[in-house]
């Protein structure tokens, strides 16, 4: 379904991805974990084609998206939905216009029909009566839900989540985790999430991959990851400052 092969990406002298490889099966929920600055966001941007690798390839059903023309790439993106870390709602549009954006633009639906679908998608993520509000009138958790409604509105095959629980209180974070699981069950989508929230990773993942120094160093089910013998992964999942991963500015 989705395969990253030997991805390399540098920004100036900063070599962020150093041969990252990952395979996600159809209908699978893959969670990529890794520390801040480990290249998780760069990885997800390669999957959706907003960044092109210096070396390596991203295959969607066997087709390399780096080799696609601009038009083909935009067509391929219609198969994706993405939830951004800070939701990235269009602040000049009402909530329903955000959710119905792709439907009106690509589905060529009339405004009333698109609004009806948007209200239905908002209900799916647990929001009722907010369709006419502006994004600035919503709380952080509500914004994430609207972002999720927008991501699923055009019924994508692949859902990408960029730090879905970051910035939320634990209860709201858990509610978002439940929504992600619900989306997977209801819509049968393939999903890739990047996070450093281990509670969220264990809950939503079929498999977890650890990105470290630009490479995927371990892949396994949540149970396999919990019982890993890899010292780097162990240090990360237990959240210890002491171990092979050195924390900038901390000498211990």
């Amino acid at each position: 379904m989705l395969e990253l092969i030997d991805l390399h990406k540098s920004f100036g002298g900063n070599h962020v991805l150093r041969g990252a490889s990952l395979k996600v099966e159809k209908g699978e929920s893959m969670v990529v974990i890794g520390g801040s600055g480990s290249g998780k966001s760069v990885l997800i941007k390669h999957i959706i084609g907003t960044l092109k690798p210096d070396k390596g390839s991203v295959l969607i059903d066997g087709a390399d998206i780096a080799a696609l023309s601009e038009n083909e790439l935009y067509e391929t993106r219609k198969r994706f939905g993405m939830l951004f870390q800070m939701a990235a709602l269009f602040d000049s549009m009402r909530v329903w216009e955000n959710v119905a954006f792709a439907l009106m633009r690509h589905g060529k639906l009339k405004e009333n029909d698109a609004k009806e679908i948007a209200i239905e998608k908002l209900r799916m993520v647990g929001l009722v009566g907010v369709e006419n509000l502006m994004p600035s009138e919503l709380s952080g958790g509500m914004k994430k839900r609207v972002g999720l409604a927008r991501a699923i509105a055009h019924e994508p095959e692949i859902l990408l989540y960029d730090e879905p629980t970051t910035g939320l209180d634990p209860i709201m974070a858990d509610a978002i985790n439940d929504l992600i699981i619900e989306m997977k069950q209801k819509l049968a989508v393939t999903s890739v999430a990047i996070t450093h929230d281990m509670h969220s990773a264990y809950k939503i993942a079929d498999r977890i991959a650890m990105l470290y120094q630009g490479r995927i160093i371990e892949i396994g089910t949540p149970d396999e990851i919990k019982n890993t013998g890899n010292a780097i992964v162990r240090q990360f999942i237990t959240g210890s400052a002491v171990g092979p991963i050195k924390v900038e500015g901390v000498t211990a």
Partner: peptide, 11 residues
């Protein structure tokens, strides 16, 4: 990231 969001919505 609203411009990135436009890209991901195939726009």
């Amino acid at each position: 990231e609203q411009i990135d969001a436009l890209e991901t919505l195939a726009t």
